[in-house]
C-alpha cells in the first residue's frame, strides 16, 4: 500500500440515481445506483453492453441528466443544470477520455490539447505553452504539430489524455480508453493512467474488458441498471492476467 493523503475525502457521491429513457417503450436504465468514490481512487465500472454503465458515465460527466436521486461531485450538487453551468463544470472539474479519442481533425495535437483552455478564456500563447508542457508529460512533445490523422491510435489517446489533464480537473472519466487500441498500446495508455493515479488523480474507467478493470483499485460491477457488487482489487499487479498485460 502506498500513501494517499486524500483517501477519506469524498469525490463522487451517488445516491439512489434513477434514469429512464423516454420513448415508445420507456427504458429504465439505472434503477437506483449508490456509489461512493473517494478522492484519489482508481475505479473501474464494468458491465456488459446494455448494463447501464455508459449512462452512468454520462451522468458522472454531466453529459446527461438523471431523474431521481442525488449526485455530489466534490461536494457540488449536480442536478438539472443549465447548459451554461454544466459546460462550466465539465470544463473545470472533469477530464474526458473517449474510446474514439474525439480529437478535432483540423487542429494539430497542440491545438487539440489547448482547446479546453480556449473556453476558459486563456490567451493563445499561454494555452499553447501549457499544451506543450502536457504533451511533454505524455511523451509527445515532438508530435505537437502533427494532425490527428498523422498519429497512431496510442498517440491519439495520449493527446486526448493530455487534453483531459490540461484544466487540472478533479476527476478523469475514461470511456473504454483502450477499446480502439491494440494490446501493446493499451498497456501504454493504462500505464499512463496508473501513473496519474499515483500522482493523486481520481480516475473512473468504464470498460467491459476485465484486463483493464483489474488494473484498478476498485471494480464496480453493474448489471441491469444496478450495482451487482463492488470488488476491492487490493493488489492490481496480481490480476489474473499478470502484471502489465491487458487481456484483449
Amino acid at each position: 500500500m502506498y500513501f494517499c493523503p486524500y483517501i477519506d475525502i469524498s469525490m463522487i457521491k451517488l445516491s439512489g440515481i434513477h434514469k429512464t429513457y423516454e420513448g415508445v417503450q420507456p427504458l429504465h436504465v439505472l434503477k437506483g445506483i449508490d456509489l461512493h468514490i473517494k478522492k484519489g481512487e482508481f475505479v473501474a465500472i464494468m458491465g456488459a453492453s446494455g448494463s447501464g454503465k455508459s449512462t452512468l458515465l454520462n451522468i458522472l460527466g454531466i453529459l446527461d441528466d438523471y431523474d431521481e436521486g442525488e449526485y455530489l461531485l466534490d461536494e457540488t450538487p449536480i442536478r438539472h443544470l443549465k447548459e451554461k453551468k454544466a459546460a462550466y463544470y465539465r470544463n473545470r472539474m472533469i477530464g474526458f477520455i473517449f474510446q474514439s479519442f474525439n480529437l478535432i481533425a483540423f487542429k494539430d495535437a497542440m491545438e487539440n490539447v489547448a482547446l479546453p483552455l480556449f473556453y476558459q478564456g486563456v490567451s493563445r500563447r499561454k494555452r499553447n505553452e501549457l499544451a506543450m508542457q502536457y504533451l511533454e508529460k505524455v511523451g509527445l512533445r515532438d508530435w505537437a504539430h502533427h494532425y490527428p490523422n498523422e498519429l497512431s491510435g496510442g498517440q491519439k489517446q495520449r493527446v486526448a489524455i493530455a487534453r483531459a489533464l490540461i484544466t487540472q480537473p478533479r476527476i478523469i472519466l475514461a470511456d473504454e480508453p483502450t477499446g480502439a487500441l491494440d494490446s501493446r498500446t493499451s498497456v501504454e495508455v493504462m500505464e499512463l493512467l496508473k501513473a496519474l493515479h499515483r500522482q493523486g488523480m481520481t480516475i473512473v474507467v468504464v470498460t467491459h474488458e476485465s484486463g483493464v478493470a483489474y488494473q484498478t483499485q476498485k471494480i464496480v460491477h453493474i448489471k441491469d441498471g444496478l450495482i451487482e457488487r463492488i470488488e476491492d482489487n487490493v493488489d492490481p499487479s496480481a490480476s489474473p492476467f499478470g502484471n502489465g498485460s491487458v487481456m484483449k
Binding site: K84, A87, R92, I104, A105, R163, T167
Partner: peptide, 16 residues
C-alpha cells in the same frame, strides 16, 4: 455535429 459534441464536452457553452 461530432466536433460540437467534443467542444461541448470540453466546456463550450451553447453561446460559445
Amino acid at each position: 455535429t461530432r466536433e460540437f459534441g467534443i467542444r461541448k464536452a470540453l466546456g463550450a457553452t451553447p453561446w460559445n
